[in-house]
């Protein structure tokens, strides 16, 4: 679409109007502020971002009788369904150790990504009323979505820890590794949310494709199997799947949480390169996504 090109405010400004405006200290509206100013404004609106994320997190369950209980119940039910499907109905022998815990960690971590992706994509179009009524850096909306999903993740992690302990794992110091791992993953997810949010504004149809992309990644990211086991003879394909950012993050979390999987002979090997990949994906996606989003700042609200 032609309108993808970011506009600058000077479109069609007549010189006389501009001169008169300058004389009286009026500033031109619209367009996109420089990156530095934008970041500063975004920072000054951090309370709004946080409050908006928190309110949405609360509001989504407020009308239910169990209220915030669903924040815990939802992942529990999810774990039960996947547990039923993959360990009872589709059982097979070549399963990693402690398969229920393995599955729960994978599914919950993936849920964080898929939520950021699909809700982040809709963050601008579903808040169009707000965009058309209030002035604020539009990056607040995808960011608030990621924060909201991160709050949900916190609840899921608690459930996850309980389940992992119930399956016989004892908490150890390595569990703390999930904090940097999830932090890097959140950066990655925010980047994806920025990219998806802008693309969706240009082309609404993308929301139709997101479930399929998500589903594809669900099967490709080793949620219910270990990629290294399954694709060890596939050469380049196996390597690509191993490098898949979601597999990297999920492997880090599993390595941290599940004692029985640590080490190459048990399934998951974590090296400095894995952390470098996780950091690289997070930082690069975040920066690229943010800049891509900012470049169209003046266009949001027109659709």
């Amino acid at each position: 679409m032609t309108s993808i090109l970011p506009i600058r405010p000077e479109t069609g400004a007549s010189q006389r109007a501009a001169a008169r405006a300058a004389q009286y200290g009026l500033v031109q509206l619209g367009g996109r502020p420089p990156l530095g100013a934008y970041l500063k404004e975004l920072w000054s609106r951090r309370h709004l971002t946080w409050e908006f994320a928190k309110s949405r997190f609360r509001a989504q369950n407020e009308a239910n009788r169990l209220g915030m209980g669903w924040v815990i119940l939802n992942p529990l039910i999810q774990a039960a369904v996947y547990g039923l499907v993959f360990s009872v109905i589709m059982s097979n022998d070549s399963r990693p150790d402690n398969y229920p815990a393995f599955l729960v960690v994978g599914v919950f971590t993936f849920t964080f990504f898929s939520g950021c992706f699909s809700d982040g994509a809709k963050s601008l179009i579903s808040n169009r009323g707000m965009v058309r009524a209030l002035h604020f850096p539009r990056a607040v909306l995808p960011l608030a979505t990621v924060i909201q999903k991160a709050l949900e993740l916190c609840a899921m992690v608690l459930v996850m820890m309980v389940i992992v302990m119930l399956t016989g794992e004892a908490p150890d110091i390595d569990w703390l590794m999930i904090v940097p791992a999830y932090a890097l993953m959140a950066l990655f997810c925010a980047g994806v949310a920025f990219l998806a949010a802008r693309l969706t504004v240009h082309m609404r149809d993308i929301t139709q494709l997101i479930p399929f992309v998500t589903r594809l990644f669900f099967y490709l990211s080793g949620i219910f199997y270990i990629i290294g086991d399954r694709f060890q003879d596939e050469g380049i394909l196996g390597t690509l799947l191993e490098l898949n950012p979601l597999n990297v993050y999920i492997s880090l979390i599993r390595y941290a949480m599940l004692d029985g999987l640590r080490g190459a002979e048990n399934g998951i090997e974590i090296t400095a390169a894995t952390w470098a990949l996780a950091g690289g994906y997070g930082v690069v996606l975040f920066v690229v996504g943010f800049i891509f989003f900012w470049r169209a700042e003046g266009l949001y609200g027109r659709d």
């Binding site: 619209g30 058309r132 009524a133």
Partner: peptide
């Protein structure tokens, strides 16, 4: 709040639309 297709608007500060409801 809605980008112009053409033309420009100059203003003293950001005009506020009484639309906080959104």
């Amino acid at each position: 709040l809605v980008p112009p297709a053409r033309g420009s608007i100059f203003s003293l500060g950001n005009p506020t639309l009484l639309g906080v409801g959104a």
